[in-house]
Amino acid sequence: MMRIIVLLFLFLFAASGCIHHRIGMPESAASQNRNWQTGVTTRRDVVAAWGNPHKISGDVWMWQEWISNGGKVKASYYMIGLTISNAAASVREHRLTFGEDGRLKGWEISESIPGGSKWSLWPW
């Protein structure tokens, strides 16, 4: 049992904390754009899956996912201590263009960091 405790201690150190924050539409909803069809999907269909758009510019409706990944570790022993933390955030934007009939004309996805932000503890 003590061996497990020691291994756990080492694991905790190696795991280096894990922080994940998400704002915006749920992850499961974000993948639903595979079902969108130009000329068929309406604005209402998209709102029913993703909620109201975060930005509207004319006929372009935009939905955003804000994701932040990072880590944090505190090490302290009596009066000596230090804290290391890091966070990287990115935005994924889904831009959908609708025609005057309210149906989808086209869509594109852009990411402020291709592939999303990576987990990393080290701030340097």
């Binding site: 201690f9 905790l12 150190f13 795991a15 280096s16 904390g17 894990c18 922080i19 994940h20 924050h21 998400r22 880590g71 944090k72 570790v73 505190k74 090490a75 302290s76 022993y77 933390s85």
Partner: peptide, 9 residues
């Protein structure tokens, strides 16, 4: 002694 933070929001 070493305390990593695990957080989900």
């Amino acid at each position: 002694i070493v305390t990593p933070t695990f957080e989900l929001s």
